[in-house]
Design a protein around this nucleic acid. Structure first.
Length: 192
DNA sequence: GTTAAGATTCCG
DNA sequence: GGAATCTTAACG
């Protein structure tokens, strides 16, 4: 009940399905300013909507995500301190953090929490696309998205239909360098 | 200025 | 198992 009202609505979308119509509501600021461990699982089942030079806009359901939380979390880039790259994670939730790795892949992240609480959610997979590097390649997301505000951007936003999805949790991928206890934190969430 | 390593993916 | 490919951060 209240969950549908909890977040400020900044827009609505209609989807045409096979005879059915699903109404989506764009997530507002309040959705993102919560702690990353609350936001991350809530993103499962939400829709990433991209109008990135394509018409009509494209829509992808989020199926896999990971939480990176604060300066203590050795797997989180913020543990290296506040730098040009991590700067956006220190801003209020709802912004996009993208960075380049392995010389060929962009990683798409959603900043969460309040200002000066560096956290972010890595989008590891969407419906039909597995792997964070493949997601950005398919959706054509690159460094130009750094700092983009999901609440006001014309080319990217996230919306939900009011229901929550079931998910499983497991340790994060590719962060062996972080060591314990971070390597064992079940902060990776996948749709069930 | 130099260098090591990386929130990955694809090939063999 | 290893290459591709280059930015970032650490060190000198």
């Amino acid at each position: 009940m209240l969950t549908a009202m909890r977040y400020s609505n900044s827009g609505r979308d209609m989807k045409r399905g096979s005879g059915t119509e699903m109404e989506l509501t764009t997530l507002g600021r309040d959705f993102y300013t919560r702690d990353v461990l609350e936001v991350t699982p809530d993103l499962i089942g939400k829709f990433l909507i991209i109008s990135n030079g394509h018409s009509p806009e494209r829509r992808f359901m989020i199926t896999e995500v990971e939480a990176y939380r604060g300066t203590d979390d050795k797997a989180c880039h913020a543990s290296k301190g506040r730098t040009a790259r991590t700067e956006i994670m220190y801003h209020t939730g709802g912004k996009i953090y993208v960075y380049f790795v392995y010389g060929m892949y962009w990683m798409l992240n959603i900043v969460t929490g309040k200002a000066d609480e560096p956290q972010a959610v890595l989008i590891r997979g969407v419906e039909g696309i597995s792997g964070p590097g493949r997601v950005t390649r398919e959706l054509e997301i690159d460094g130009s998205f750094y700092g983009t505000d999901l609440i006001s951007s014309e080319r990217i936003r996230i919306a939900g239909n009011g229901s929550s999805a079931h998910y499983n949790a497991s340790p994060r991928i590719g962060i062996g360098y972080a060591g314990e206890p971070w390597i064992s934190k079940p902060w990776r969430f996948m749709i069930r």
